Computed example of a mutant assay.
Amino acid sequence: MSDHVVGSKSFAAVAINCASKAGEWIMSKVGAHEVLREKMSPHDLVTEVDKGSEKLIRSLIMMNFPNHSFLGEEGVEPGPEASAKALEDVRDAEYLWIVDPVDGTTNFVHGFPYFAVSIALAHHGEVILGVVYDPWKDELFIAEKGKGAYVRGRRMNVSSEPTLRDSLVATGFPPEHATALPRNLAQLQLLAPKVRSIRSSGSAALHLAYVAAGRLSAYWEVGPNSWDLAAGALLVQESGGRIGDQDGTPYHLGVRNVLATNGYIHDELQAELAKA
């Protein structure tokens, strides 16, 4: 196959193909979790499924786009320093695929049906394509920069709640227990009485997709990685929402303390998080 033909392959078509193949692989392993390896802490389980899913995605991408760069969760040591270093090494690449092969491995291991494949493509550090695929529900969320965001082929829009007290918001419980978890818990304690309710379902990528789809008014968390957020960030932006760092910095690949909202409650929520 000539470079020309390879070059004309649509980024979105390849990403969708990768997500669906990886989703099939993941679903074939549901219930077969005898092989468990622990990574970082008992709360951060990783399985052979992660490795198989990432290998599959990486090989499909490299087959189609051999000159592109690739950042996946599996090659990176646990912890924020290693994550930051891994991103630093590749973030200036012309084309960089950023992949979380299974976001929500702990859920997967326990048979809790909330996990996703997250695939993003960045061009010179800016995300131009994002796919989040929930294989359990067979829901594919996709956004291309400037073209809107879609789920099951329907255009997505963020929710319209105007205030925190009307809002359903999501957060996470960070696997890093020294500083990230206590900070997140302090924020949770402060916010719980001020919103309609809070959910914590264990997948940053799906939480972001749900903000984009209008199913959640907002999602915040201390410390998720670039591969947890990159695809979902574009989904939120292309659905009319806002995403950035909790300190107010607009979204970039290095953002870790994430805040994503429908836009209407962004400033209010950001101010409350700052109090914690």
Rank of each mutant, 00 (worst) to 15 (best):
P113A: 07
F115S: 09
V117A: 04
V117T: 08
L121R: 01
A122E: 00
H123I: 00
H123R: 09
H124N: 11
H124W: 01
E126Y: 00
V127F: 03
I128A: 02
G130Y: 02
V131Y: 06
V131M: 07
V131K: 04
V132D: 07
Y133S: 05
W136G: 12
K137N: 14
K137Q: 15
D138H: 15
E139F: 13
E139I: 08
F141N: 03
F141K: 01
I142M: 15
I142D: 01
A143M: 06
K145R: 15
G148R: 04
G148K: 03
A149D: 06
A149S: 15
Y150Q: 06
R152Y: 01
G153Q: 09
G153K: 07
R154Y: 10
R154M: 12
R155P: 08
N157A: 13
V158T: 07
S159Y: 00
S160R: 13
P162V: 04
P162K: 14
T163D: 13
T163E: 13
L164Y: 09
L164I: 03
D166I: 01
D166L: 10
S167K: 10
L168Y: 06
V169E: 07
A170E: 14
A170V: 10
T171Y: 09
T171G: 08
G172H: 13
G172A: 15
P174L: 05
E176G: 10
E176M: 08
H177A: 09
A180H: 08
A180E: 12
L181Y: 05
L181T: 11
A186P: 08
A186G: 12
L188W: 13
Q189A: 14
L190C: 10
L190V: 11
L191C: 10
A192D: 07
P193G: 07
P193W: 04
V195L: 11
V195E: 11
R196H: 12
R196L: 14
S197K: 12
I198N: 09
I198F: 05
S200W: 00
S201W: 11
G202H: 02
S203P: 05
A204M: 08
A204L: 01
A204I: 10
A205K: 03
H207F: 06
L208Q: 05
L208C: 09
A209T: 04
A209W: 06
A209S: 15
Y210I: 02
Y210N: 15
V211G: 12
A212Y: 08
A213G: 14
A213T: 03
G214S: 06
L216E: 11
A218Y: 02
Y219F: 15
E221W: 02
E221N: 14
V222W: 10
V222P: 05
